[in-house]
Amino acid sequence: MFSSCADPKAIEGLTWLLCYLTSGKHLDFYASFGTVLALLAITAPTALAFGFFGAMAARSPMLPLRLLGQGYTGMVRGIPDIVFFLFFVIALDQGIEWMVHQVRCPDWTEPVRQGLEFRVCPEAKVPSSNAAQTWHSLYGFGLAVFTFALVFGAFAANVLTGAMAAVPRAQLETAESYGMTPRQVFRRIMVPQMWVYALPGLSNLWMILIKATPLLFLLGVKDIVYWARELGGSKTQAYEYPHPDWRLYYFLFLLCFYLLMTWGSERVLGRVSQRLSLGQATAAGEAQRKAAA
């Protein structure tokens, strides 16, 4: 990056460190923090949407829909999330390829599953085998995001079902007595009021989501854990910047990053909780009213 870094073997001390920390691979490492933040930014709203529909389904008067919703919300309780992560990424990949295969190669006669292999016609490969590397990474990232959203959507559905049930019945009865239809009651009364009850659960969920992001590494995405392992491993003299095994320091850095993230989130969410409690018929809202009076 800097001109003084042209010959890394000749420099030492602080200059060496500066050159080392700005080498091409390290810039990739810093960029991978963006990957993690992008995952959080995309997954959180998607999971919330999944959770919202899951909660609606779980409360539906129609039996099949209700069973589906309850099954969806219940699955995360019994099964470790990492099983879903490992399962869905392969299953989705194969499912997509199989569907493309059905569309593009209708007269392909060989079975798709041959013993230990999953083989679709070459045109059905997603992304196609001559696509740029970027597309392959993007596709992998997309699969990971979808899987995260699906699993955390189930957690969110749990929280939102509880929150919907927590809205005081009297509020809904009042709305009904004004002649609102069930749909209107849901949209105008229940949804605006449920957030304050959902917030503690959703805050916790956000924390879990932050703490789940290193699992991206298991899904084959080049995230911060991947780079920390890659860069921290001991480098022999054959490398530009030889050093002993520094993985411990890299992981300590990641630990600090995560502690900072959770600490910051906790403070922000505390503020949001204060704001949402304003004027609500809860203990926190009551405390605010008394403090002001």
């Binding site: 789940a212 590494f217 854990v225 993985r247 995560y258």
Partner: peptide, 14 residues
């Protein structure tokens, strides 16, 4: 704070 604030995954590695 340290054990609740950081991912278990990272704790294992570390």
């Amino acid at each position: 704070f340290v054990f609740r604030g950081s991912p278990l995954f990272i704790q294992f590695f570390l």
